[in-house]
Amino acid sequence: MITRVKNQIVQGKHNKPILTDVFYDDTKKEQAVVIFCHGYKGFKDWGAWDLVAENFAEAGFFFIKFNFSHNGGTIKEPIDFPDLNAFGKNNYLIELDDLCSVLDWVAASGSLYKKFINTQKIILIGHSRAGGITAIKASEDIRVSKLITWASVSDYESRFPKGEVFDRWKKEGVYYIENGRTKQKMPHEFQFYTSYEENKERLTIARAVKNIRIPHLIIHGTADPTVDVQEAKEIHTWNPESELFLVNEADHVFGAKHPWNHHKMSKDLTIITEKSIEFTSF
């Protein structure tokens, strides 16, 4: 029987809660753990992520998904972005710390889940921007057994504003990106850039991928309009031992959207979920 526990609080390092969901089969012991990390302007309850979680749990995995502490959600409103102040203060280091906090929570496992979790088998899945976060963490944390990236970016530096937009950002201390779905003006404080520059070596995805010594599955859609498929091919060249799995004509979210009002996943999301489950089997 699949048990679903929503909106548990994991204490992080930055005075913001990390809201966490777990899905697992309560009849099985010592299940391998899958930790799913959402991407930019994402959240754990986006679209069909619950269906992904259920599929992994039905396949015998203890599946965890969570909101990064500064993704803009709150305890009372974990969906969408009621806390734009927190969103503006987010950066890559905070997201790495959040993922570390979730890994620490899994390692401790607690009395409630201890018998269900095998802490020697931990798989990270990162979508889009979080593909880079999970790759960096996988390269530096020996607790991670396998890595899967979905539609991952290959670098962070090229995504910062350029020219006059950058100069205005530096001068004013904040710039805004419109959320196409919610129409919110989402802020980025200039510290987002300076924290990257101050930690550039650690935050270079190419460096991290070249240092990965565990199985790595790279999944990407060939028609991704947000992160070009060439970025997946580039990541693959940095780690020739990795596996590259391309989904013909798939987009950035593999046919899903938010809200997702269906009982089944999209065709492409089903394909990549099944492929990921196959890859995560020990």
Rank of each mutant, 00 (worst) to 15 (best):
L217S: 00
Q8G: 03
S195E: 14
A108Y: 04
P82L: 09
G163D: 11
F254C: 07
E243F: 06
K89P: 00
A151L: 09
E30Q: 15
E197K: 15
V247H: 12
R129I: 00
K264D: 11
Y176I: 00
F190P: 01
R207K: 15
V5S: 05
I277F: 14
P17A: 07
V253D: 09
S139Y: 10
F192E: 02
H127S: 01
T270F: 11
E77R: 13
A135I: 00
V102Q: 12
A130G: 03
W49Y: 15
F166A: 05
T194Y: 13
L84A: 05
I125M: 12
T194I: 09
N7R: 14
T270C: 08
F279R: 05
T194H: 11
T226Y: 06
L99A: 07
I214Q: 10
K170T: 02
M186W: 09
Y193E: 02
Y24A: 00
A208C: 02
G180A: 12
N7Y: 10
F192T: 01
R213V: 02
I133M: 14
H70E: 06
G88Q: 10
E201H: 10
S266I: 08
M1Y: 09
G88Y: 12
E234T: 14
L96A: 08
F192Q: 03
L269I: 02
E243S: 08
N118W: 00
V174L: 07
Y196S: 04
I218P: 02
S158G: 13
P240K: 14
E95Q: 15
I271E: 06
T273D: 07
E241Y: 11
T226E: 14
D228Q: 12
E249C: 02
P187H: 11
N71K: 14
E274A: 13
L51S: 11
D50C: 05
Y40V: 00
I117T: 03
F66A: 08
Y156V: 03
I2V: 15
S276G: 03
Y24M: 06
S128H: 11
A232C: 12
P82R: 14
E249R: 13
K146R: 15
I219P: 00
F160L: 10
G73R: 05
A223S: 11
R213S: 12
N179C: 05
P225Y: 07
K200N: 04
Q31G: 00
T149S: 08
K146V: 01
A86C: 06
V227R: 05
R4D: 00
Q191F: 08
K137W: 03
K200G: 01
I9V: 15
K16L: 13
N67L: 06
W169D: 04
F116N: 02
R207G: 03
